[in-house]
């Protein structure tokens, strides 16, 4: 099965439940994960990226269970919420190092690095040290490292947080373009407008539980709201939608 399938996923931090009985089917395309801070979005994404174990349930990525971490890692590109890189390396060196960690050969890197830099409008910064990048450029470098090895599944954690409107629009468009190439792109945010602009499917996560999973239009219809933001608020205030 292509995409991500999550069945009865649980995760606990000690005694505190971070995720409770999460069930989701995320098909290829751009899929939004909406929830307030502390809702469990990052925990879910880190589990999907094999950086956290699931304490219960079963998850597959393109049909491969998470227990096979090496295979899953080969298929997944991940942009962490607070992506950072080594300040003294240049943008090109950073991508070269990440690509090598992903098992890419010198020839692959020679082809992919310029292509990815071009796609993310970072060619002019290729020789710039990471410490000299703006917040928006750094976020784009984060996306670049995530897509460098051309993974079929992309997990991006709050990529638009803290960006100016122009950068936000640019990044959303970029994610939509990546999804249009047949990838499964899971995109988390607490800004409903970002999801409404580019996603068709979404899940609303609140206090570790899925409050809604379906389409953006479906959530608006169910709550009778005009905007996704209103629908989201109605959803999390009214319990299960």
């Amino acid at each position: 099965m292509q995409g991500i399938e999550i069945n009865h996923l649980e995760h606990r931090y000690g005694r505190k439940a971070a995720l409770c009985d999460v069930n989701l089917r995320i098909p290829p395309g751009l899929y939004g994960l909406l929830g307030r801070n502390g809702a469990g979005k990052t925990t879910l994404m880190r589990i999907l990226a094999t950086l956290l174990p699931c304490t219960g349930g079963r998850v597959t990525v393109n049909g491969v269970p998470l227990a096979e971490a090496a295979r899953v890692r080969a298929m997944v590109g991940y942009l962490p919420q607070d992506f950072a890189a080594w300040p003294r390396l240049t943008v090109r060196e950073t991508l070269g190092y990440f690509g090598t960690l992903s098992g890419m050969g010198a020839r692959d890197l020679q082809k992919r690095v310029p292509a990815v830099l071009a796609a993310l409008h970072l060619q002019a910064q290729a020789g710039t040290k990471v410490r000299a990048l703006s917040g928006g450029m750094l976020r784009r470098l984060g996306v670049a490292q995530a897509v460098l090895h051309d993974p079929p599944v992309l997990i991006v954690d709050e990529p638009t947080a803290g960006l100016d409107p122009e950068e936000r629009v640019r990044l959303r468009a970029l994610l939509a373009a990546l999804a249009a190439q047949g990838r499964t792109v899971l995109f988390s945010t607490h800004i409903a407008a970002d999801i409404e602009a580019v996603c068709t499917g979404l899940a609303v996560l609140d206090a570790g539980r899925v409050r809604y999973a379906g389409t953006v239009a479906g959530l608006k219809a169910r709550t009778g709201a005009k905007t996704l933001e209103q629908a989201y608020l109605a959803c999390v205030r009214g319990g299960d939608a």
């Binding site: 990226a49 890692r73 950072a84 090895h149």
Partner: peptide, 11 residues
């Protein structure tokens, strides 16, 4: 932010 980007790699 750095750690996860490295640890998620195939290496």
């Amino acid at each position: 932010g750095v750690r996860d980007a490295v640890w998620v790699r195939r290496v």
